[in-house]
C-alpha cells in the first residue's frame, strides 16, 4: 500500500463522503474545535445516559478535510457500536481511548491503533506517518476530551 493509500483508506474516504453521527440539537452542550491553518471545524456533543454515568452516543457537525470529517464519523460510529454491545463508555474509558488514539497518531507509524479497541477507526493509523495531518484526525477527539474536562470541572 503506497503512503497515500494508507492515508486515504477506503473506510476513511467512505466515512468522509457519508459521515455518521451528524446532527446536533439546539441548546445541547458542545465543544467547537478549529484547525486554523486549513479551516477544519468540528462541533461535537456527548450524549449521556439518564444516570449520567455513560456516553450513549456522540453527535457532531463540521466541515473540513476528509481526514477530520472521517475521524469524527469514526468516533461516533465507535461510540454507537460499543453502546449497542452494552459497553457504553464511562468518562474514564473514553479518556483512555483518547489517550491511546493520541499516542498512536503521534507515533509516526510506530504504534498502530488496536483494531479490537478501535474497530474501523483503526484505519486512521495511516495518518500517523503524515505529521501535518495528525491535527486534522485529532480534532473530534480533542472536542470530546474538552467536554470530559469541562464535566470533571
Amino acid at each position: 500500500m503506497s503512503g497515500l493509500e494508507s492515508l486515504y483508506q477506503q473506510i476513511i474516504v467512505d466515512h468522509a463522503k457519508h459521515p455518521h453521527g451528524v446532527g446536533l440539537t439546539a441548546g445541547e452542550e458542545t465543544s467547537h474545535q478549529l484547525n486554523p491553518t486549513c479551516g477544519d471545524e468540528i462541533t461535537l456533543a456527548l450524549r449521556w445516559s439518564a444516570d449520567g454515568e455513560h456516553i450513549e452516543s456522540v453527535a457532531w457537525e463540521g466541515a473540513g478535510c476528509s481526514i477530520s470529517q472521517a475521524s469524527a464519523s469514526l468516533l461516533a460510529t465507535l461510540a454507537a457500536e460499543d453502546a449497542a454491545a452494552g459497553d457504553a463508555w464511562t468518562p474514564v474509558q473514553l479518556q483512555s481511548l483518547i489517550d491511546e488514539f493520541r499516542e498512536a497518531l503521534r507515533s509516526r507509524g510506530a504504534t498502530p491503533l488496536d483494531e479490537e479497541r478501535f474497530g474501523d477507526a483503526a484505519a486512521l493509523s495511516g495518518v500517523s506517518k503524515f505529521v501535518a495531518r495528525v491535527k486534522c484526525a485529532m480534532l473530534a477527539w480533542v472536542a470530546a476530551e474538552d467536554l470530559l474536562q469541562r464535566r470533571a470541572g
Binding site: S2, G3, L4, L7, Y8, T37, C38, G39, D40, G64, C65, S66, I67, F130, R133, C136
Partner: peptide, 19 residues
C-alpha cells in the same frame, strides 16, 4: 478539501500551498 488535494500533489513531489 484543499488539504486532501494538496496531499495528492505532495505524493507526486509537487509542493503547493493549501488553506
Amino acid at each position: 478539501h484543499a488539504h486532501d488535494a494538496g496531499q495528492v500533489l505532495d505524493d507526486q513531489g509537487i509542493a503547493v500551498r493549501v488553506g
